[in-house]
Amino acid sequence: MTAVLASSTAFVLLLTITAYSVAGGVDYGAGIWDLLAGRGARADRARALIEQAMAPVWEANNVWLVLAIVVCWTGFPLLFQSVFASLYPLFAFALLALILRGAFFAFRHVWTGPSGRRRTGVVFGISSVLAPFFFAAALGAIASGRVAVNGPNTPVWQACFNPTSIAFGLVSLAATAFIGASFLVGDARRFGMPDMTDYFRLRAVIATAVLIITGTIALAALGLENSRLLSAMLIGLGTPFAVAAVIATPVVGVLLWRGIFHWYRVLSVVVVGSLVFAWGFGQSPYLLPGQLTIAQSAAPPGAQVLLSIVTLLVVVLVLPSLGLLVYLDQRGALESQEG
């Protein structure tokens, strides 16, 4: 019973990380394209679309991040301690980027002059690159096997920055740009901006190619550093998800290349979700590969039970209200199109 509870908590943890990767990815991805838009009339239109698309989010994505943190320290206290004792620089950097990003998104909005808007926009864009990079690098550092119980088994800086962690960071950037562009295609279509649809279609295709390349590099890095995990991802519980990512990524690229606007957003969610799942299931039953299993770090059953109840409440209360919020957001857009 305890083992089942602990496994389900581990699954909830993986789900919240996935939700943050997807929802945060769409958001960070828009920031990356904002940074890369350059100057000129077309760039201004792209930025106007990005700002419009991101406005309803107002930092609410942080909820997923906080949930992941809380589930981690409540459900797996020893994992939490070990990860933070080893990787605190990565989290500190990610955190600073996260604050700067939110602050400068708001700052740009209230800034009136064009040069000030440009400068605040650059900070917003750069921090949109750094935050997902450092968060994903932390997952890569765990995958590399350098995070041991109570602290790293190498110097902290090596635990944070090594081939696998950097490769994971680069994959996350590509995946973030990929899902961001894919959703911006949808937003451009919703707001009736055909030139922007093409603009982000092209960028989504480029991001697909970059994602395939960085993904291959990351697999090679992982193979060199932790071949056990790589083989578990390729032949094991992670396999179906790895396969799903490998198939879905080029499909999204082809769909958008040919201008077929069906399923591309769902499939890009599948890509990002599968990447996270392939890592998570590939590691299981280990939370820290070769060091700490789910059972070894599980909190006492009372804590697991409470987490299950909270999870259930999130599903029952939060999901329907989230649906209502999305409906209201979309409904406003519909009304004004009619009017």
Binding site: V71, A303, L306, V310
Partner: peptide
Amino acid sequence: GRYGAALGLGFAIEG
């Protein structure tokens, strides 16, 4: 690491 399972209960509800 030591008290997360207890301290976290309130925070889980806060989440």
